[in-house]
Write a protein that binds this DNA or RNA. Sequence first.
DNA 1: TAAAGACGTGGGAGCGCTCTCACGCTTTAT
DNA 2: ATAAAGCGTGAGAGCGCTCCCACGTCTTTA
Lengths: 341, 341
Amino acid sequence: MAELTLEDIAKKVGVSRSTVSRVINGSLNVNSEIRRRVMDVIHETGYHPNAAARSLASQRSGVIGLMLPRSVSSFFTDPFFPQLTQGVAYGCNKNDLTLSLYLVGNKEDEEKIYPRISRRGLLDGILIQAGQPDDRLIDYLDHSRVPNVILGRPFVLNGANYIDVDNIEAAANATRHLIKLGYERIATITGTQNSAVTLDRLEGYTLAMKQAGREIDDSLIVEGDFTEGGGYEAMQRLLPARPDAVFSASDIMAVGAMRAVQDAGLEIPGDIAFVGFDDIPMASSAVIKLTTIRQPILQFGIKAVELLLDIITNGKQPARRVMLETELVIRESCGCHKVNI
Amino acid sequence: MAELTLEDIAKKVGVSRSTVSRVINGSLNVNSEIRRRVMDVIHETGYHPNAAARSLASQRSGVIGLMLPRSVSSFFTDPFFPQLTQGVAYGCNKNDLTLSLYLVGNKEDEEKIYPRISRRGLLDGILIQAGQPDDRLIDYLDHSRVPNVILGRPFVLNGANYIDVDNIEAAANATRHLIKLGYERIATITGTQNSAVTLDRLEGYTLAMKQAGREIDDSLIVEGDFTEGGGYEAMQRLLPARPDAVFSASDIMAVGAMRAVQDAGLEIPGDIAFVGFDDIPMASSAVIKLTTIRQPILQFGIKAVELLLDIITNGKQPARRVMLETELVIRESCGCHKVNI
DNA sequence: TAAAGACGTGGGAGCGCTCTCACGCTTTAT
DNA sequence: ATAAAGCGTGAGAGCGCTCCCACGTCTTTA
């Protein structure tokens, strides 16, 4: 059997192409008896409209893209991205959208992916993970007129639509918690130097420290790279500065850092307390349960899809900024019992 | 400016639509001077062909799908799937394909996703992760004529094209390693009961044991569920049986199980040795470095894409089965030094 | 009672490509 | 010298939908 078309269905029912199209697209003005008969034939025959034809005629594909730039090499080492992807996928399912995933591996991929994104007719819009400041992609997208939403605050704003969690406030909150618990030498392990997330979380730390009248001691600020190994090494560099508490800019780095602390023969939270960021599943299942900032990662993905949909329908003006709230989840690693008990 | 079309480019250069199309599609029979001029105009104008129109006319979309069924709920707890996704993404990049990701969250999603997949014109083919035996999807796909490749051995074969690692041999290999090291009470933590991977890895374990003349002791076989928590609980159930070595059907379960062992005040590998399966990044970065079976996960994804491409081009007959080799990676958790030093 | 509106339906045009065929020209074989 | 084959090009048809307009029928309003 050849592939069925709208016209075939119409012929079988004895109506016109247009009527069948109306039934499929849920138009109101169709006689209910005819609607029923059309539906029946569609189910019997297992007919599905051709997506390409539909996209071409309607100028809408029902597909959105999710792009994770090259700088996000940690796709499979940090559970953050899989979870984000899942959130976006759910958002797509909810809104009857199909998700295209663009994982950029290397420079070569990058060259190939750009044109694929700008090709009209394939994507109705795209979600892009914010990356390094030198990321050419966001510029590139401003020129092409593909509706887009940046996941996370981009470095240069100029009119960009983005969604982000309030990293500054969240980090400040985490730091304040450690301050309140009476720790004297509170350190922080930051993320990769030149990313907005890193900057914001560091700013939150600094803010809370200053507000509490504490000096900022540079030896208590070390750079990680959002990987477990990076956290381990950062902690090794940090140990000589004798911190009694650490705010880590991501859970996965905190896990690495805690391992370094244990390897050094110290206790958590007895000798060094920890607060992380993300609340990945491992945070609650690790040997020492991690106190951390919970990001609504699934919600983040879902909201991002909805924001993009809004832009697709109503245009990118005015620029939209969505901020999501976070929450401090208290477990064992911060040593709360010190004061509570 | 309105969107450019082929015809616009043709007019600017002073040739016909057909010639521009030939240039874009790399046809040989084009005068090189004209080709150059066409290329120039394309670059100047930033023209990109419309994907929908192209798909409609050529009956090829250049998009393939990756479907992870509902039973794969562990998308973001087990790094296996993100890594697999990455492999598939690289395979797509290499072959100038776009990847659509279908993550099924719940029953409702499932209903919505089926028709999206069968819609012609959107997908050239699809990769499906093998799941439970009652998975309706694979049946469903056999009826629709979407070219497909199953990732992992499906329960019912009938003509299915699939790619898998040799789980039986790999598991046997892992078990033989423990046997060779002189362990007496070798246990295994299996995956979710009714999945082909679980069955195969268990069969490998049984095979190696029998070949070595060992009795199969049912109290040394416990079921996990491919999560860290599941591994922890499985190990707790296993401890009373006093194993001195464990082959875990996945690394992430091994990590959980090792935690249970430590929580029980026992040493690894001194009291209980471990071999895992997968070689996820955590295996080499955990506190106790895990001896494990390395699956070529990235390769797996890339090969899967190539296999699918072959099927798209040359038809699904004859059925193809691709088997990938694995490798035993020896680290600390198996206690190799016991015999070597 | 006639004009105006609402409703349900059909048909044509068109979305922007690819693909086949036909045409004229040049090169090669007979 | 002539036929055959090859090359580069253009034009037409068609991929399977959506969208708009026109048309007939029935209902509402002045």
